[in-house]
């Protein structure tokens, strides 16, 4: 049994390696290939991208309530003369860092740090960039006791009406509510091999297919790759993956282009567009008569202010 597992692991490791070197292969990757690539150790993480994109960067720690969560990096960077707040999930670049960063699984203080930094950015009119790369929020005792649900919920609410532009990039694993907790913004991009889903394929397989070994099939059925999510209109665009430096350069170009555009718009328009976009996601039959009033709500918020 153990031997079999080892063999399986070895062949899937070899498989990832062939995928990683074969640049031409991008069209032919299966969903499961993307799952493996998005989780691959040594994949460029948020910290590395921040360092490659920023001319200067200052990390800011702590949520001012409980502590600092190493699984969430936050700070202020300068990118070609523009100050930007960066927030990202951090998995760590090697085994020791992985452990220190809890494999990128944040506790509530991580989300509250992100919230604090987002509000600070709003106050000073700085745009925000979020890098998403987490298997999910941490399902532990302390995490529950300190209200992981409440922390994520607050982020969703505040980010949806944050009065400054927000760009989100899924750079690796986009794991469920833990990813969404820093994933609400004006535009959402995905790296080519990143994935984004409501549950892991393993979880989906064990709950819905009643067989944890069917994770591969689950990954296909869940439609969690960048290609699928672009077809669904959930993400704005896919960013091609090349060498880490080249990928960072593409992300940087996107950031500069979008902020040149978004930062010149009145924030009310930005927020209105963001809310309309969020409202539009979902597939239902019937009950459409209640769709219109959003615009009326906006005018109402103006008149009440």
């Amino acid at each position: 049994m153990a031997e079999e597992k080892k063999q399986g692991l070895k062949s899937s490791l070899e498989h990832i390696e062939t995928l990683a070197v074969d640049d031409q292969n991008c069209g032919g990757k299966s969903s499961w290939d993307c799952v493996l690539l998005s989780r691959q150790s040594g994949r460029t993480g948020a910290k590395a991208f921040i360092d490659m994109i920023c001319d200067e960067f200052m990390e800011i720690h702590g949520d001012r309530t409980y502590g600092d969560d190493p699984a969430m990096i936050g700070g202020i960077g300068m990118v070609e003369g523009r100050a930007i707040t960066f927030i990202g999930n951090r998995k760590g670049a090697n085994f020791r860092e992985n452990v220190a960063c809890n494999y990128g699984m944040s506790n509530p203080e991580g989300y509250r740090k992100a919230l604090r930094l987002a509000k600070q950015a709003e106050k000073f009119g700085r745009p925000v960039v979020c890098f998403i790369d987490t298997p999910g929020a941490y399902p532990g005792l302390g995490s529950e006791e300190r209200g992981i649900g409440e922390a994520i919920a607050q982020n969703l609410k505040v980010f949806s009406t944050l009065k400054t532009p927000v760009l989100c990039f899924i750079i690796g694993e986009g794991g469920s509510g833990g990813a969404l907790g820093i994933g609400v913004g004006d535009k959402l991009y995905m790296l080519e091999n990143a994935v984004y889903s409501v549950i892991t394929p393993e979880g989906f397989a064990s709950i819905l297919l009643r067989d944890p070994s069917k994770a591969k099939e689950a990954a296909e059925a869940m439609k969690m790759t960048s290609q699928h999510l672009k077809q669904f209109g959930v993400i704005h665009d896919i960013i091609e993956e090349k060498s880490p430096e080249q990928t960072a350069a593409l992300i940087k170009q996107t950031i500069i282009r979008d902020f040149d555009n978004l930062c010149s718009k009145p924030v009310e328009h930005l927020v209105r567009y963001r809310l309309q976009k969020i409202r539009g996601i979902g597939e239902v039959k019937g009950g459409k008569e209640w769709w219109h009033p959003l615009l009326e709500v906006f005018s109402r918020t103006q008149s009440l202010r």
Partner: peptide, 13 residues
């Protein structure tokens, strides 16, 4: 799938 996750953002907004 992803549509269910997005309902969290929708209701929170």
């Amino acid at each position: 799938g992803i549509f269910s996750l997005m309902q969290m953002a929708k209701t929170a907004s």
